[in-house]
Simulated scan of single mutants.
Amino acid sequence: MPISPNQGSTGGGTTVTITGTNLTGTSAVHFGAKLATAVTNVSPTQVTAVSPSGSGTVGVTVTTPGGTSNPISFFYVGAPFKSGLSSSSGSTAGGNTITISGTGLSTATSVAFGANSAVPTVVSDSLISVVVPAGAAAGPVGVSVTTAGGTNNGLSYTYIDVPTITAIAPDSGPTSGGTAVTITGTNLASTEQVAFDGAPAPFSVINATTVSAVTPPGAAGAVDVTVSNPAGTATDADAYTYVAGPGI
């Protein structure tokens, strides 16, 4: 006599289907010593019941006018606990894979990022991976994991838009580098790198529209300037010109 699913939350409330024979007239379903909170006699071979609260492993029995069945095992599972995300931000387009660590994750069936959900891949009881779904808009959203034991919230993920560059001032300087430049644009608060012709430059984030950087040394001529954040990279082609010093 199988039961599906054979595990559920310690808080109860899991609807299970019990399959067997001679189930007509079922009057009670017990989970251990506790009665199911609801029982529906679907057919002579099938009964549905809602599990009461409980813990550990219990035997489930069905009682009919003909007697009580043999017990079948049902496993109570505690709600998951999440301890962290491998990455707490990413593009509003989604598509990046992150891992979630914690406990009680082996039965995870869904991970919600705000209003959008994704199906995770279970690595172990303490680790799952999930492809982040697209976000409705830039900003933080709550992350919740649903398992057979219930749903747990408490973590946050921030959706970020790709940066843009609107101006660079000054737009030229010596090949020796060391020029302080101000880069203005949008979505710059989470800037991870500023580069001149591919060479990383020291930088400081002023606010969401302004970044200050110091040019590295470079060869004479116009070079691309890039600004990167977790969502992507903005490129301003030939935006800064290295000027060779005078020679005698």
Rank of each mutant, 00 (worst) to 15 (best):
T121M: 10
N96C: 09
T109V: 15
S106P: 02
S106T: 14
V119T: 10
V60I: 08
G67H: 04
G78E: 13
S73I: 05
K34V: 05
T19E: 03
T40E: 08
T57K: 06
A93W: 02
T14R: 06
S83V: 15
V77P: 02
P80K: 05
T121S: 14
T121H: 11
T24V: 14
V77T: 10
Y76A: 12
G95K: 04
A112R: 05
A93M: 08
T45Q: 00
T37M: 12
G102P: 05
V111F: 02
A108E: 07
P120G: 11
V122K: 06
S89I: 10
S51W: 02
V143T: 08
V123C: 01
S55R: 06
L23C: 05
G67W: 06
A136W: 05
D125K: 05
S88M: 04
S124L: 01
S106D: 07
F81K: 04
V145Q: 09
S55C: 04
G67I: 03
V130L: 13
A28S: 12
A115E: 08
A38L: 13
I18D: 00
A118N: 00
A138L: 12
G32A: 09
S101V: 11
V132I: 14
S43H: 13
G139W: 01
P120I: 01
I72Q: 14
T64Q: 13
S101W: 02
S124E: 08
A137D: 11
T107W: 13
T19C: 08
T64D: 09
V132G: 13
G67R: 08
T68Q: 15
K82L: 08
G67K: 04
S129M: 11
G135E: 06
T97E: 11
G66E: 03
S106Q: 11
I18R: 08
A38C: 09
I98E: 13
V58P: 03
T63Q: 14
P52R: 01
S89W: 03
D125L: 01
D125W: 00
T61M: 05
S89K: 07
T99W: 03
G95L: 06
T99C: 11
K82P: 04
T68C: 13
S129N: 13
S87A: 15
V119W: 04
T107Y: 01
F75R: 13
A33I: 12
V60S: 13
F74I: 01
H30R: 09
V141F: 06
I98Y: 09
L23G: 11
N41F: 00
V77Q: 10
S144G: 14
D125A: 15
S101K: 14
T14I: 01
S88F: 11
